[in-house]
Amino acid sequence: KHICAICGDRSSGKHYGVYSCEGCKGFFKRTVRKDLTYTCRDNKDCLIDKRQRNRCQYCRYQKCLAMGMKREAVQEE
């Protein structure tokens, strides 16, 4: 069993190059498709875990990228 590289929830498989849960997969897809931009209200180092993953979209998206999620993979779907 794999866990989500972004928030630690149960992974549903590899999405956009990274083991991730449905929540983070959908979040990344929406962000890329709609070309959304986020801002962090703190120091750009918010904790992203299962409980708090919805608290800061900026940091969640940065963690998706840092863990290796690929924007191109969304476009190719």
Rank of each mutant, 00 (worst) to 15 (best):
72 E>D: 14
5 A>F: 15
58 Y>T: 02
39 T>E: 14
28 F>G: 01
38 Y>C: 02
38 Y>K: 05
72 E>S: 13
29 K>W: 11
67 M>V: 10
22 E>V: 07
65 L>D: 04
35 D>Y: 04
17 G>K: 06
24 C>T: 00
40 C>E: 02
33 R>I: 11
59 C>S: 01
1 K>M: 06
70 K>L: 12
77 E>W: 14
19 Y>K: 08
59 C>V: 00
57 Q>T: 06
40 C>N: 01
9 D>W: 04
43 N>K: 15
15 H>Q: 10
10 R>M: 05
9 D>Q: 13
44 K>I: 14
32 V>I: 06
77 E>K: 12
77 E>V: 11
10 R>L: 04
5 A>N: 09
71 R>C: 11
75 Q>M: 14
44 K>Q: 08
7 C>A: 00
38 Y>G: 08
18 V>H: 02
67 M>T: 11
12 S>F: 05
5 A>Y: 15
17 G>R: 05
69 M>N: 01
76 E>S: 08
30 R>Y: 04
71 R>N: 12
28 F>D: 01
3 I>C: 13
9 D>G: 04
22 E>T: 08
6 I>S: 02
4 C>L: 00
47 L>A: 11
20 S>F: 10
10 R>S: 07
17 G>W: 04
32 V>Y: 06
24 C>L: 00
43 N>I: 12
9 D>P: 01
56 C>S: 02
12 S>C: 01
53 R>Q: 09
3 I>M: 06
50 K>W: 05
29 K>D: 10
53 R>Y: 12
18 V>L: 04
29 K>P: 01
28 F>S: 01
46 C>L: 02
69 M>H: 01
20 S>Y: 09
43 N>C: 05
70 K>S: 11
67 M>Y: 10
26 G>Q: 14
10 R>K: 09
23 G>D: 14
16 Y>Q: 15
48 I>N: 15
13 G>F: 05
3 I>P: 06
38 Y>P: 14
37 T>D: 15
28 F>V: 02
72 E>P: 04
74 V>R: 09
29 K>A: 14
7 C>L: 00
28 F>R: 00
1 K>E: 04
24 C>V: 00
11 S>Q: 05
70 K>T: 09
72 E>C: 07
18 V>N: 01
51 R>P: 14
68 G>M: 03
44 K>W: 10
4 C>V: 00
20 S>D: 03
49 D>N: 14
22 E>W: 10
41 R>I: 14
47 L>K: 07
73 A>I: 14
70 K>F: 14
14 K>L: 05
58 Y>Q: 06
19 Y>P: 11
51 R>A: 12
70 K>H: 14
51 R>C: 07
65 L>P: 01
26 G>D: 13
13 G>L: 06
57 Q>S: 07
70 K>E: 06
20 S>L: 14
65 L>T: 15
23 G>P: 04
9 D>Y: 04
77 E>T: 15
20 S>P: 05
72 E>I: 14
10 R>C: 07
44 K>H: 06
74 V>A: 08
51 R>Y: 07
40 C>V: 01
68 G>R: 03
75 Q>F: 08
28 F>L: 02
33 R>E: 14
77 E>Q: 10
8 G>N: 09
72 E>H: 05
30 R>D: 10
36 L>K: 09
4 C>H: 01
8 G>S: 08
5 A>L: 14
68 G>P: 01
6 I>Q: 00
4 C>K: 00
66 A>N: 11
57 Q>H: 14
36 L>R: 12
76 E>Q: 11
7 C>V: 00
71 R>I: 13
51 R>W: 08
24 C>Q: 00
6 I>R: 01
36 L>P: 06
8 G>D: 08
32 V>N: 12
59 C>M: 00
8 G>F: 12
77 E>H: 13
14 K>R: 05
45 D>L: 07
38 Y>E: 06
30 R>L: 03
53 R>S: 06
41 R>W: 10
72 E>V: 15
24 C>W: 00
23 G>E: 08
58 Y>P: 02
59 C>N: 00
31 T>S: 09
64 C>R: 01
6 I>T: 06
24 C>R: 00
33 R>D: 11
70 K>P: 13
8 G>A: 09
53 R>P: 13
65 L>G: 04
14 K>H: 02
1 K>A: 01
73 A>N: 12
21 C>M: 01
24 C>A: 00
4 C>Y: 00
6 I>P: 01
71 R>Y: 11
18 V>A: 04
19 Y>L: 08
70 K>D: 12
28 F>N: 01
24 C>N: 00
66 A>M: 08
38 Y>V: 11
46 C>Y: 02
39 T>C: 14
16 Y>C: 10
71 R>V: 13
19 Y>S: 06
9 D>A: 05
31 T>V: 11
65 L>S: 07
16 Y>W: 10
45 D>I: 04
68 G>L: 02
38 Y>F: 15
11 S>T: 05
22 E>Q: 05
32 V>H: 06
14 K>S: 08
2 H>L: 08
50 K>F: 10
65 L>I: 04
69 M>Q: 04
14 K>V: 07
53 R>D: 11
65 L>Q: 13
36 L>T: 09
68 G>A: 03
11 S>K: 05
2 H>F: 07
58 Y>H: 15
6 I>L: 04
26 G>E: 08
14 K>G: 11
40 C>P: 01
41 R>V: 10
68 G>E: 05
1 K>S: 02
53 R>C: 07
67 M>G: 09
36 L>C: 15
12 S>V: 12
36 L>F: 14
11 S>H: 09
41 R>F: 13
36 L>E: 13
76 E>L: 12
59 C>Y: 02
76 E>W: 07
3 I>A: 03
14 K>C: 09
67 M>F: 10
4 C>I: 01
66 A>V: 13
65 L>M: 07
14 K>F: 12
20 S>W: 14
30 R>G: 06
30 R>Q: 04
48 I>A: 07
38 Y>S: 09
13 G>E: 15
27 F>L: 03
16 Y>K: 05
3 I>H: 12
3 I>K: 04
7 C>G: 00
26 G>C: 06
4 C>W: 00
43 N>F: 06
49 D>I: 15
73 A>C: 14
9 D>L: 01
38 Y>D: 05
18 V>G: 12
74 V>D: 08
33 R>T: 10
19 Y>H: 06
69 M>G: 04
51 R>F: 08
37 T>C: 15
46 C>Q: 03
39 T>G: 14
54 N>Y: 07
22 E>C: 08
32 V>G: 07
41 R>C: 15
36 L>Q: 11
76 E>N: 13
67 M>Q: 09
46 C>S: 03
70 K>R: 10
47 L>Q: 05
59 C>L: 00
9 D>N: 07
70 K>Q: 10
39 T>D: 14
35 D>N: 04
66 A>W: 07
26 G>L: 04
51 R>E: 11
31 T>R: 01
58 Y>S: 11
10 R>Y: 09
1 K>N: 09
4 C>T: 01
58 Y>N: 05
65 L>R: 05
73 A>V: 09
